[in-house]
Amino acid sequence: MIQNFFSGLYELILGRPMPANFTNDYREVVFPNTGLQLFLISLALVVIYYYVLNRMMSTGFYKTQHWVLFLALNAIIAFVVPIVQVNSHGIDSHSYTYMFAFVNMIYSLILFFVFSILLKRGSVQAWTTPMKWPHKR
């Protein structure tokens, strides 16, 4: 179920895994692992930004540029994770690997943004970062 979800998510844009003889490794291991890590790491960074740095502590990292810093950090992690996954499973290197890493990075930007919109309301100092919408308060 989760396998199919993540395989579908990546193959929607990337197409069939290449080299094709490693299709199973991508579908059964690399896609689900990368997808799960993408969700959890993005969520964790959003939580750290809004709830740790800008609620429990008052660190002053509430500006949009700090938010962008975290967005970029998340994107870098999202680019590295697929490459590590592919290499650690003995899959032959292919341009597909880097396309996959790139797509995962784009997904991380979207996810980080979505999680920010959903969770920023609970933050004390940063509820208007990166912008006020959709909250009015």
Binding site: L40, M56, Q85, S88
Partner: peptide
């Protein structure tokens, strides 16, 4: 709220480590 956060962190770590065992 701190203990609540610790709980959240613990949960996250568990999930992430669970993810690594899958790997």
């Amino acid at each position: 709220s701190v203990s609540g956060f610790h709980l959240l962190l613990l949960c996250l770590m568990l999930i992430v480590s669970g993810c690594y065992t899958r790997e």
